[in-house]
Simulated scan of single mutants.
Amino acid sequence: MSDELKKLTEQAHDGITTFDFDGKETPCIIIEEKKYDDMLAKVAGQSLSINTDLNILQDGLGNVFVEVVLTFSKGNIVEKFMIDAKTHLDFFVTLSKTSMFALSSPKSNYGKDNVFMIQLPRPEKAQDALEIIKNALIPKNQK
């Protein structure tokens, strides 16, 4: 394993899942409870937008990581999550279908309460990202 791949693997966020939200499978990033509570305290009751960037990192050998960067318009909040796309492809498949995802704490009841939903303004970006991820998961010498 290359040093770069090892570094990305170590940075990969563990709290990646999906849950049923109003009959639709929805992607979810689970963050540490204190960080989640602090984030909500800064933005609660405010109208805000969240810029969501999906930075795709690939090595041509079938390893793909996606850095999800969330920049909140209020509260001076920027959150980054590194996701191993090989391990969590379902996150990106559901993201391309729903164009939204949730942030949640470990103690939340997914799909019921205490989840922070983020809607992507341009659904085609998630679909484009999924195509890039799927293509990158296939090592170049196997195409």
Rank of each mutant, 00 (worst) to 15 (best):
N109D: 11
S99L: 07
Q46H: 09
D14C: 03
K35C: 08
N55V: 09
D3M: 04
E10I: 13
Y110C: 02
S2R: 13
A126K: 12
Y110Q: 07
Q11I: 04
D20Q: 05
K97H: 13
S99K: 06
G111R: 15
K134R: 13
D38T: 06
A126V: 07
G45R: 01
K107T: 15
K34C: 06
V69L: 01
T18A: 08
K6L: 12
I133W: 00
K6N: 11
Q46G: 07
Q46R: 08
V69Y: 00
V93K: 06
G23L: 06
K140I: 15
D20A: 08
E67T: 04
P139K: 14
S104W: 09
F19G: 03
T52I: 13
K80L: 08
E124D: 15
K42E: 14
I30S: 12
A102P: 00
M100V: 02
M100Y: 01
V93F: 04
A102I: 03
K143V: 07
V43A: 10
I16N: 05
A129F: 15
Q142V: 00
I29Q: 12
L137H: 01
I29Y: 13
L95T: 08
T94I: 00
L57F: 11
R122L: 12
N63W: 05
L137P: 00
Q119T: 04
D59G: 11
E131Y: 09
F91D: 06
G60L: 07
D53N: 09
Y36S: 07
K34S: 14
N141I: 14
L8S: 04
K80H: 01
K107M: 03
G15S: 09
G15L: 10
P123I: 10
G45I: 05
R122W: 09
P27I: 14
P106F: 09
M39L: 15
D53V: 11
N51W: 01
D84M: 05
F19W: 09
A102T: 06
